[in-house]
Design a protein around this nucleic acid. Structure first.
Lengths: 211, 211
DNA sequence: ATGATAACGAGACGTACAGTATCGTAATCG
DNA sequence: CGATTACGATACTGTACGTCTCGTTATCAT
């Protein structure tokens, strides 16, 4: 954590050694700020979120926020990190695992600001490379359960060992991302099964291989 | 912002009847504004784009912009509509069509602000339903060539007729969207072939069907 | 021609918010 | 108990939105 200076996207000093003297930072204020951030993200969305609004909702001065986060963006990144991600489910078969995991994950989109924050972070990272560096470890952790399930399937022989699992994971979540974020569609739970089945079996009619 | 009656996301009055009297709107200014918008999107990205900057670059007064577009967002939507989309390629086989189309499309991402504008619009639509109404027809038109290629494949018997082509199209573009926008990855042209092949053939080992 | 009308470039204006700085106060350490 | 640092509050600077008003210019109707 040493080279903190220069990034502009610090992560809130979690776990850093406290200074020897002076009043310690209030963990209560820290939590109140993150809670208020998530509430307001839910209510007004990312682009209408103001630091002043967060301070007011949290009952906190603006300086208390800027003392912890250098700007609005890393605050939202940290709040985002507390939102639910994929949870591993082991049903014994790949299709069952994926369907259960996607169903649960989609439910999280209904009860959290995930659907708002995700595309906002994606938009921001497009012209803010530093954000990517902070965001990537978080994103990687969020999809790890997906890769775990795929690795189990390889071990069981459901997936050929030469398949690129990273790409496979993107193939699974891709249609959901496209529909949710770019096309603005609501995804009915009954849609999960056909989505997973198509990704697992492929678009092309079996046995029509031309190569 | 204001309680702007109706849409608030007008599309620039394209095709509307001109008023009987008065100086007509300058088509030259219109084009200069859109060009400046695309240039600045390319240079500074969406969130750093300012209307004042566009006006300056276009050599136009701010009022001239606001006379045509009610805010920055619909201006960007219209500029976005002029960026390259999928172009249909007919090679006689689905895999070839898709690989050619994706390769060309990915090249467009390198020479236009597509990579910046796309996720920004996605972020904005998440809490601005009106944007969706303006955006959806544009998006639908952009992916039509993809669906055309898929329909050809159905006619050739490469795809079973019961396959959901809309979902299939999302499966094709999904991994690209995820990698480009959410994971911030650069997609090397050599990655197109494995991407298409995996979507066409599926993740699961053939003949391992458990249902 | 001439007047009515509306768009033009320029830029002033009010509002909102980011991020900084400065209050007086409160908590913790040596 | 004094030094130090965080606290909530709030004033401040700077930027950009979106509105408005200039004086000017292009087009139409008479």
């Amino acid at each position: 954590m040493g080279a903190e200076a220069g990034s502009g996207l610090g992560n809130g000093d979690a776990g850093a050694a406290p200074p020897a003297a002076g009043r310690p930072r209030s963990g209560e204020a820290h939590r109140a700020i993150l809670d208020a951030t998530l509430e307001l993200l839910q209510e007004v969305g990312f682009s209408a979120l103001t630091v002043e609004g967060v301070a007011g909702r949290a009952g906190v001065g603006k300086a208390t926020i800027y003392r912890r986060w250098p700007s609005k963006l890393p605050l939202v990144v940290e709040a985002f990190g507390q939102l639910p991600a994929f949870e591993d489910v082991d049903t014994g078969a790949l299709a069952g695992d994926l369907k259960a995991m996607l169903t649960r994950y989609l439910q999280a989109f209904l009860s959290t600001p995930l659907a708002t924050v995700y595309p906002s972070l994606a938009a921001e990272r497009a012209h803010n490379p530093e954000l990517g560096q902070v965001l990537d470890p978080v994103l990687k952790g969020r999809r790890r359960p997906l890769e775990t399930a795929l690795q189990r399937a390889v071990a069981r022989g459901e997936i050929a060992p030469q398949v690129d699992l990273d790409l496979a994971a993107d193939l699974i979540v891709g249609p959901i991302a496209v529909r949710l974020f770019f096309r603005g569609m609501k995804i009915h739970p009954s849609m999960v099964d056909p989505m997973v089945d198509l990704a697992l079996d492929g678009i092309r009619r079996n046995g029509t291989r031309t190569e």
